[in-house]
Amino acid sequence: MIWQLDLLILTLVVVCAVVVINLKDLLAATVIFGVYSFMMCLLWAEMGAVDVAFTEATVGAGVSTVLFIAAILRTTRRSKD
């Protein structure tokens, strides 16, 4: 484990999570959530849990982003609150 790489990825994960919560545009939030999933995937792979990283990359970043976008297209794009 390289602690500089760990720190960089962890910072990006936290930044992505805060941005996702604060965005009003749901489509942009979905895209940033995909970035968050990829960062988590990098973090798992860096910690040696390759199987979990694989699942995070396929399900978290791949399919769930598509399902979120499909759900957004059935609603309005900007959140009201």
């Binding site: 390759v50 199987d51 990283a53 694989f54 699942t55 396929t58 399900v59 791949g62 399919v63 598509v66």
Partner: peptide, 21 residues
């Protein structure tokens, strides 16, 4: 090796999802 039924199944499903899009 890393991977398995679940991950491979999701990749195959994502291929068909890409086709339907």
């Amino acid at each position: 090796s890393p991977g398995g039924g679940f991950q491979g199944g999701v990749i195959l499903g994502a291929a068909y999802i890409m086709l339907s899009i």
